[in-house]
């Protein structure tokens, strides 16, 4: 890291440019006064008029509200299921079907979204014919579909936290007279809480910007925000989409940042504890 040669600086510059110039240009154009997305109106820019337009657009506000609801319920559901799966994988030791379970829970990470979406759609349609539930497609089906794939991420985060966690803490609590439920709520849960929170944020952002799976399982009248953006873009790009996309990027960026900070703080603490433990031995 010491030699900051020209080559390295250029590599850094182009790397970042490749990733962020499109987003930056979109953000800049969201403040453009012109109706034409590609023409910069230097006289009246920057302006917040597209943001104002968004606020009075009921379709977008409705979609945003639906997206937030879906994301919040998804994140909560995924955290509950993902934590349980993570606990089983990290704590149960070897059992029959462990490898299978481990593979199955992480499979959605690599499964093509089109396949996940299609198979869920088929399942929902079949279930409706069979038992009459879920009735039609909308909030419920979108949420179930989102939980399915975001749970895998939570499982991985929780499991990796539990792997660095000293099992004897739980044994010590039990030894001191705490029943298993008490051990979980007083010892295990507080210690894996940072991982759970970062898993929640991760699941929230995943659900918030999912388009493909939502397209499959959404019904009439249940349009999420990414779906609105996508359908608007197909009719031609209008500048209010830039403003909307900017807000979405901000929300996602915030979620990812907070979750990353949490994880980093946690890692540092683990490293510090390990360092102190080593220092004691010598």
């Amino acid at each position: 890291m010491k030699s900051r040669s020209l080559f390295r600086r250029l590599a850094l510059f182009f790397g970042f440019a490749f990733l962020y110039v499109p987003i930056l240009s979109m953000i800049v154009y969201s403040f453009n006064n012109s109706r034409l997305v590609t023409v910069w109106d230097a006289d009246d820019s920057p302006t917040l008029k597209w943001y104002r337009a968004l606020l009075s657009n009921d379709q977008i506000l409705g979609a945003a509200w639906l997206s937030i609801k879906v994301a919040a319920v998804t994140a909560t559901g995924a955290v509950i299921l993902g934590t349980l799966a993570g606990l089983v994988l990290a704590r149960f030791g070897p059992f029959k079907g462990r490898t299978l379970l481990s593979g199955m829970t992480t499979a959605p990470l690599v499964m093509p979204e089109v396949i996940t979406g299609l198979s869920l759609l088929l399942l929902f349609v079949f279930l409706e014919q069979l038992i009459g539930w879920p009735q039609g497609r909308g909030f419920v089906t979108i949420t179930i579909a989102h939980i399915t794939f975001s749970m895998a991420y939570v499982t991985v985060v929780v499991q990796s936290r539990l792997a660095t966690f000293d099992d004897s803490l739980e044994e010590a609590a039990m030894d001191l007279g705490a029943r298993p439920a008490k051990v979980f709520f007083r010892i295990t849960l507080p210690l894996i809480l940072p991982a759970i929170l970062s898993g929640w944020l991760l699941a929230f952002t995943l659900s918030w910007d999912d388009l493909v799976i939502s397209q499959f399982v959404a019904g009439p009248g249940s349009t999420t925000l990414p779906m609105v953006v996508f359908s608007k873009v197909r009719l031609g790009v209008s500048p209010d989409i830039n403003a909307l996309a900017t807000i979405m990027v901000m929300i996602v960026g915030f979620g990812v940042l907070v979750s990353a900070l949490y994880m980093r703080r946690q890692e540092r603490r683990v490293a510090l504890e390990a360092q102190m433990a080593r220092a004691d031995k010598h």
Partner: peptide, 30 residues
């Protein structure tokens, strides 16, 4: 958790999210 026995672990297994006092009080709270 029902045995009249307590154990001191090799790693000490102190609860990192509790104070010294909290650690010592944990067993009595149960």
């Amino acid at each position: 958790y029902e045995r009249p026995v307590n154990m001191m672990f090799q790693s000490y297994a102190l609860f990192p999210h509790m104070t010294v006092e909290g650690n010592v009080a944990f067993g009595l709270e149960q």
